[in-house]
Nucleic acid binder design. Structure first.
Lengths: 165, 165
DNA sequence: TATTGTTATACTCTATAACTATA
DNA sequence: TATAGTTATAGAGTATAACAATA
């Protein structure tokens, strides 16, 4: 019944600091690689990668947004940039005419293909080179659990208090 | 002699995705908390926290920057904001007159104190609540190793290529 | 009325380059 | 000449609110 103690144990603190450090350094390095290799921001890469994963390379705007962007206008902005570069197309959905379907173009796939090898190499040399297979196993298990918890616990915006009512 | 293979194992992929997901969701939640509780951006919080850790609450600009900010002007900008709010002071160093020493004020400590409990609570409910003590142990160990690797391997900017020479 | 997405706008943040001053 | 820091400036990104259109 351990109800959110008011301090962290030294180990928790260590885990948190290490996490933020890895997160910051890794992200910075990866952003640089994506910028150099394909003129992509991290967000743009994530959007393209999500499309690459999707059946037929297409998704509705709302589905595309998920963990990537936290405002609808932010997604519109990025989708516009990608469309201008010809990496995606945006067309109204035939099913629901309110929806916009974003689809990866051949050029979009090409950019993904250009960027991927360096991306993977960066992950290898920066992260996985330091870890044993067992470590990676553990990491996947633990962070997978944490991710699921985060995904489910506060559905998106906990907002425990409002300003000004 | 496993020289950076050109693909990731499913487990590595899982670890990476989980990591980015946790990183993104946790950071977003924490930023919201810091903003609500103390009108601080994440970077500003990190700077204050670093000062709070330092002997006498003071550090040179350069030492303060470390993992937090990746350009000197960015640090100057943030330091100015904090100084305007009276949370830090900036004074030339007596030792080396090129240096600026940033020092936490009482108001700065007060803001840190205001923000900390909610910060810790957020970490508890969002991250540690999902993990066993053993998990946290493992996480600290693995990520600690990764952090050290990242810290040492590319001293700061690998820059394998330049644009335009 | 609720949902999907866009637009307008304002703001925060970051990075580059030029500059000053001290070591 | 190298280091520490600031300034000017420009650009990228984000979020809020108002809006339009469809369900």
């Amino acid at each position: 019944m351990d109800s959110t103690p008011s301090a962290l144990t030294p180990t928790q603190l260590g885990a948190y600091f290490a996490f933020t450090e890895v997160s910051s350094l890794l992200r910075h390095a990866v952003e640089q690689q994506l910028r150099d290799a394909g003129e992509l921001s991290y967000v743009q890469f994530q959007l393209l990668a999500r499309l690459g994963d999707a059946p037929e390379g297409r998704r509705r705007m709302t589905d595309l947004a998920d963990g990537v962007v936290y405002s609808r206008s932010g997604l519109t902005y990025q989708a516009q940039l990608l469309e201008k570069r010809g990496l995606v197309t945006r067309t109204p959905s035939p099913d629901d005419e309110r929806s916009t379907v974003v689809a990866l173009t051949d050029a979009g796939r090409a950019v993904l293909a250009t960027v991927f090898p360096g991306h993977i190499e960066a992950l290898h040399t920066l992260l996985f080179a330091a870890l044993s297979d067992a470590d990676v196993d553990e990491l996947a298990r633990i962070l997978g659990r944490a991710a699921e918890h985060l995904r489910t616990t506060p559905p998106r915006s906990a907002a425990p208090r409002r300003r000004k009512v």
